[in-house]
């Protein structure tokens, strides 16, 4: 990429990146890598990582689709979680410095790669699939446009983990509090007209930790790369539980 851009249009950028190699490092550290980025084009953070990897070949990070669909490259960009592939440098860089760290609260496997096991354990607990009790219909389980509309703002989650790893309640209780992503998915199936396990789903959430550890900090909403609102979803589940228990 850099070879196609005339040198005079390049400007230096300091990339400060979190490094940890389990084979040689006892502790994680921050490494500054000076790179040159085009002055006349707004690159994405992921492009910068690729440029940095040309200099530091051992630098490790996850990526796949590079267009905000797969959710692989979630990381902490200058203090705020986001997807490297959809975060432009113009939004992220402060004082000519880009600071990249792994998503908070999860064990680091290497550099910017975290172990997402805890995140997916919590996701699994909400049974993220349709549960039906009737026999399967001949063709399909139908849904009216109005019923389908209820899923908007819920089904778009790509499970990048940005929200849950930005949530202080998830940091302190990652094994008990389900986290914003899992709870968003939970509501997605609670409101689905085709699902027949609403009461069981609500029963599973009706304890001190699974749902009620959310304190409305709204960092999940602030960082969601898809513009979703897990805090509102959590509030809606709360209201359903309250109305049910009246």
């Amino acid at each position: 990429m850099s070879a196609t851009i005339p040198l005079k249009e390049l400007k230096p950028l300091i990339l400060s990146v979190y490094r940890f190699d389990p084979n040689k490092d006892k502790k994680a550290y921050m490494q500054d890598i000076e790179i040159e980025v085009p002055d006349n084009k707004d690159l994405m953070v992921l492009d910068v990582l690729h440029l940095a990897k040309e200099k530091e070949t051992s630098l490790s990070f996850r990526r796949s689709c590079a267009e905000g669909v797969c959710g692989s490259d979630g990381m902490n960009i200058n203090g705020k979680n986001g997807l490297a592939c959809t975060t432009p440098l113009s939004e992220a860089v402060k004082r000519n410095k880009l600071v990249l760290r792994p998503m908070p609260g999860l064990p680091v496997i290497r550099d910017l790669i975290v172990d997402m096991k805890q995140f997916f354990n919590q996701f699994e607990k909400v049974k993220p699939y349709l549960i039906t009790k009737d026999d399967a219909p001949e063709l399909e389980r139908k849904q009216s446009p109005a019923e389908r509309e209820k899923l908007d703002g819920l089904y778009e989650c790509i499970l990048c983990g940005c929200c849950s790893t930005a949530c202080p309640s998830f940091w302190w209780n990652p094994d008990k509090f389900l986290g914003p992503a899992a709870l968003l998915y939970s509501l997605r199936f609670i409101v689905d007209s085709r699902d027949q396990a609403t009461e069981e789903r609500l029963d599973d959430l009706d304890d001190a930790f699974s749902l009620y550890r959310c304190h409305g900090i709204m960092n999940c909403v602030s960082v969601c790369p898809k513009g979703l609102n897990p805090a509102e979803a959590i509030s809606n589940i709360r209201k359903k539980l309250t109305n049910r228990n009246r």
Binding site: Y18, N78, K80, V99, H215
Partner: peptide, 23 residues
């Protein structure tokens, strides 16, 4: 024992005003 590092420095993580108020 899991010896892998965990990044969790709340001084370097941005929180919205709602989060700071809650804290």
């Amino acid at each position: 024992k899991d010896n892998r590092p965990v990044y969790l420095n709340i001084l370097t993580i941005n929180l919205p005003i709602i989060g700071i108020s809650s804290f």
